[in-house]
Design a binder for these strands. Structure first.
Length: 272
DNA sequence: AGAGGTACCTGGCAGC
DNA sequence: TGCTGCCAGGTACCTC
């Protein structure tokens, strides 16, 4: 499942190939993603030059001169550079062709992803303008987090996953960061202390950077088109380990639902 | 405005 | 074996 580290890995992997190329042809086999792909997408994109490929939150952003292609991988999306005669699989929804024998292929079994074309300035785009700071950027500081949590009674984990507070922290990394910071996931956000905010900011950055470092491994699979979903799993301390002993204290890890999401934590290391 | 719930979708798995 | 039902996940949108 693509979280921020994997999206970053995808960007790092494809940008050097894509930047400077001109889109020659677009094939859309499945329009029904999270939002339907514009029926004119192919018509709009053909002939455009890819100036820049970058990431904001979990969105991949292709700057194409007169407009922008926004791609979200949702839960199960993949972007691969493959040979133009690579065999077509069931959920290969979109291909971008260039003046070479390689294509960019978008695959997404669960179709929670999105591919949107916009000519509006990016800072005004409704999907981007409400986003909080990047977790690895200079704005995400203990002070910032502490102030954003004031007056909020919701569980800290829910706010950590709220993209208006900070982007890119999904269910896995929220659980891992709270464990590292030794904060109970259900703790009301306004009761999290300044000191805990310091630990939490560091923990979020640490788990994300560790995963990005591991993403290098994923990158190979990604380029080879083999796909290995097991990345980073060896390093997970709590996620997916409910009922198993805590690596730190051997206490049995608990599971609870917060915001409809399963949340694993250690009742001993993360006291209420 | 904030909090909680729902919808979208499919593969994988448990239980019958 | 085959069916049913639940779960996982990100995020916009709806309701209270």
């Amino acid at each position: 499942m693509p979280e921020l580290p994997e999206v970053q890995t995808v960007v790092d992997g494809i940008k050097s190939y894509l930047e400077g190329r001109v889109i020659q042809k677009v094939v859309v086999r499945q329009h029904q993603l999270r939002w339907p792909i514009d029926v004119n997408l192919a018509h709009e994109l053909v002939g455009l030059h890819i100036d820049k490929v970058w990431r904001r939150a979990k969105y991949l952003i292709f700057c194409l001169g007169e407009g922008t292609l926004l791609i979200h991988l949702g839960m199960s999306g993949r972007l691969q550079i493959v040979s133009d005669n690579a065999p077509l699989k069931k959920h290969d929804h979109v291909d971008l062709h260039f003046s070479s024998d390689k294509i960019l292929r978008y695959t997404d079994p669960r179709r929670f992803g999105a591919m949107l074309w916009t000519k509006a300035p990016l800072h005004q785009h409704p999907l981007l303008k409400m986003l909080g700071p990047e977790p690895l950027g200079p704005e995400f500081t203990p002070n910032y987090l502490y102030h954003r949590l004031q007056g909020r009674a919701a569980a800290i984990k829910c706010l950590l996953m709220n993209a208006q507070i900070v982007v890119g922290v999904g269910n896995i990394y929220a659980a891992e960061a709270l464990f590292q910071a030794r904060i109970h996931p259900a703790k009301p956000a306004n009761l999290v202390t300044k000191e805990q905010c310091s630990h939490l900011v560091l923990a979020v950055q640490k788990v994300l950077m560790a995963a990005i470092a591991k993403g290098g491994t994923t990158l190979k699979d990604f380029i080879n088109g083999e796909g290995n979903p097991g990345y980073f799993t060896q390093q997970l301390q709590v996620y997916g380990r409910a009922g198993m002993p805590c690596f730190q204290c051997k206490y049995t890890l608990s599971n609870m639902k917060l915001g409809q999401r399963s949340t694993v934590f250690c009742p001993h290391c993360q006291p209420a």
